[in-house]
Nucleic acid binder design. Structure first.
Length: 519
RNA sequence: GCGGGCGUAGCUCAGUGGUAGAGCGCUACCUUGCCAAGGUAGAAGUCGAGGGUUCAAGUCCCUUCGCCCGCUCCA
């Protein structure tokens, strides 16, 4: 059985609203824009901050809303702020340099991509190949024997040379490893998925550094310092939010695949024997967390990776995925929850030479004095890694609503906790003492809620336009001062999603809003 | 990276070689007593950028940048 998915939302309409209301702008727009970069306008910057704060509150300050982990104890997490630029060796240890900094050749026929320096070629043992092709292959791959047979048939005696020794113009004569036709290999291209930069004003090749492609490595690199200086005990987590950079081949889909983006990552360290329990715990909590912010419903799924999808070191990974208008009926990743085993700490231990083991004094055989002998191990790590920009985009897509039956057909159903504007105060008409009362209420509410977002005051134009403006900005509540307010100290409170109004006491307005700002 | 579409005011768009337009929004004033009401006035675009053809280019040609879509890629 399939339920009818929610009516398709137009990405164009969402993007237009984002521009119109100052949520998201194209970066460097007056210079023609820059591919893969987006700025946040006033409303967007506050919306994103509210999401980041929600993550910080629910993951660091009071992890998992105060509930206990699988060990029956409160979950403990501490924050970290690691740098965008790390020692270049960090990225060698993590595998980011080795695997993806090499020139690649593409096969235009088979769409396969090969590492340039891994491709070999069968050529005649002596002499010129004439008009016969050169047979490229990958060592220890099916292409090796297949191509060898063809080469021997063509040339008799053959020898092997690396593709790197073949001049690029000669590629026209090369038969790709898995191709049927010759000349399908592209010239070698560098795929630098990491942004390169130079440290120091002289900027020679010796000074190369990279902008981080993920915040996670900064956490692993400081793991030992955190353990040594903060009295944390495994199991515990270290969280870090911040900007990362990836030279995506194809930035696409609004902010979804940007080259500069913000992550909110937690690395949760635990004993290997408990790691699977913690993995399941985090996977389920993260899903619940996104739901609490308004991504409930069939547009949000938790997808467990298949075995062949897993990284070589991972024993389990799940993605929280959202059905964006541009991925529908498919889904796009919002957050990955990965069981990374002890891969990262082990890598950094090897590359740095520093011991990154943890000495666990709660484990090991009991001693006569009541304590334990202790156990030394490299903790396993569970990594819930969320994309904040993708989160904002998903929340906007989910919140965007069109209802032609309303006077204000287009509005954002943002959760009050995330809404950049928490409330607005209107004098019903701009006279008869109403503006004065409105200004007083506005000042009170601003003083109370400025940490969470703006409280706006608007006395311009008709009341309907003012409601509509607030609907578009996703403001959950509007408070209107009318003639009755002046006599009995009540105001009308209008709900963004239903348009329904109720009268509440003027001095209870703040408490009402405060009650709605928690998840 | 390949292929297709698009780019004119804040937004949506009209304008097929001859004086840059409309609707909405925005600003000011008036009006207005609960859902984008009405009136008056106003601001706002070197038509994505660069080059070319032409007496004349938003319009035709070339280049380039950006956005969207489909493949490809996504450690």
């Amino acid at each position: 059985m399939t339920t009818e998915p929610s009516p398709a939302k137009s990405m164009d309409a969402i993007m237009a609203l984002c521009k119109r209301r100052g949520i998201i702008y194209q970066a460097s727009e007056i210079y023609g824009g820059i591919n893969g970069f987006w700025d946040y306008g006033p409303l967007g910057a506050q919306l994103k901050k509210n999401l980041r704060d929600a993550w910080w509150e629910d993951m660091i300050l009071r992890p998992c809303w105060g509930r206990s982990g699988p060990n029956g104890r409160p979950v403990r997490c501490v924050p970290l702020e690691s740098r965008i630029i790390q020692h270049p060796k960090v990225w060698q240890a993590s595998g980011h340099v080795g695997g993806f900094n090499d020139p690649m050749v593409d096969c235009k026929e088979t769409k396969n991509r090969y590492r340039y320096d891994h491709v070999s070629v069968f050529v005649p043992a002596s002499g010129d190949p004439g008009d016969k092709p050169l047979f490229a292959f990958m060592k220890d791959a099916p292409s090796e024997t297949k191509q060898q047979k063809k080469a021997e048939k063509a040339f008799g005696q053959v020898k092997v040379v690396p593709l790197t020794t073949i001049p690029v113009p000669q590629f026209a004569k090369v038969l790709g490893p898995d191709a049927e036709k010759v000349g399908t290999l592209t010239e070698p291209r560098q795929f630098n998925l990491m942004f390169k930069t130079y440290i120091g004003a002289t900027a020679t090749e010796d000074d190369v550094a990279y902008l981080r492609p993920e915040t996670a490595q900064g956490i692993f690199v400081q793991f030992k310092n955190v353990v040594d200086t903060t009295r944390v005990k495994v199991p515990f987590g270290i969280g870090n939010t911040g900007t990362s950079f990836r030279n995506e081949v194809t930035p696409r889909n609004f902010t979804f695949r940007s080259r500069e983006f913000e992550q909110a990552e937690l690395e949760f360290f635990c004993h290997p024997d408990e790691s699977f329990e913690w993995y399941k715990f985090w996977r389920d909590f993260r899903m619940e967390w996104w739901k609490s912010l308004g991504l409930a419903g069939e547009n949000l799924i938790l997808r467990e990776h298949e075995k062949d999808e897993l990284s070589h070191y991972s024993v389990g990974t799940s993605d929280v995925e959202y059905r964006f208008p541009f991925t529908a009926p498919g889904f796009g990743e919002l957050e990955g929850i990965a069981h990374r085993g002890c891969f990262d700490l082990t890598q950094h231990q090897t590359h740095s030479g520093d011991k990154l083991e943890y000495f666990d004094q709660d484990r090991g055989e009991p001693l006569p004095n009541g304590s334990r002998k202790g156990e030394r191990y490299i903790p396993h790590c569970i990594e819930p890694a969320a994309g904040l920009d993708r989160g904002v985009l998903a929340l906007l897509c989910e919140a965007y609503t069109r209802d032609e039956s309303r006077a204000s057909p287009e509005f954002l159903k943002l959760h009050p906790r995330l809404a950049p504007v928490k409330a607005a105060v209107f004098p019903l008409v701009n006279k008869d003492g109403m503006p004065e009362v409105a200004e007083k209420l506005h000042a009170e509410l601003s003083a109370r809620f400025w940490r969470q977002g703006a409280v706006e005051m608007d006395e311009k134009q008709s009341i309907g336009k003012r409601y509509a403006r607030m609907d578009e900005a996703g403001t959950p509540y509007c408070l209107t001062i009318d003639g009755e307010t002046l006599t009995n100290l009540t105001v009308t409170l209008r709900d963004r999603d239903t348009g329904a109004q109720q009268r509440i006491a003027l001095d209870k307005a703040g408490d009402f809003i405060a009650g709605k700002l928690v998840s």
